[in-house]
């Protein structure tokens, strides 16, 4: 199944985001070997050069490292993964607040609504 990619943003950025998410959500475990560029390009249905670019980007950020001959691996630095998770969560929350503010809600109102919804789920 090809990956669902937006048509209006650079593809390699979306691949980076997708693999980051797969690492955070535990689809790829720390220290696990990644499939080859070719295989990943096939799975995602993207150009191998674009996949290569995305993986180089992930390497630069330290999330992925490569062994000269044996391939690419996910970092074993779990703290780095946790930090990435936290910063992504912050991003999502501020996006949420932004769109709620656009709808005309104050922060305190939003908080009350969230609490109400959580309570509703528990009942």
């Amino acid at each position: 199944m090809p990956w669902n990619l937006d048509s209006d943003r650079p593809i390699f950025i979306q691949i980076v985001e997708r693999i980051q998410l797969d690492i955070i959500s535990g689809i790829y475990h720390p220290g696990e070997k990644l499939p080859s560029v070719r295989e990943l390009a096939g799975i995602a249905a993207v150009n191998p050069n674009t996949m290569q670019k995305a993986l180089s980007e992930l390497e630069r950020s330290g999330l992925v490292y490569s062994h000269r001959t044996s391939g690419r691996f996910i970092t074993e630095d779990t703290e780095m993964i946790e930090n990435l998770k936290a910063s992504l969560a912050e991003e999502k929350i501020s996006e949420f607040f932004e769109s709620m503010t656009k709808l005309g809600f104050q922060k305190t109102e939003i908080l009350t609504m969230i609490e109400k919804i959580i309570k509703g789920e528990q009942e």
Partner: peptide, 15 residues
Amino acid sequence: TVEEIREQNGKSVDA
């Protein structure tokens, strides 16, 4: 390149 088009125009090659 496809990526240049997307970066510079903010749209797909198709668009």
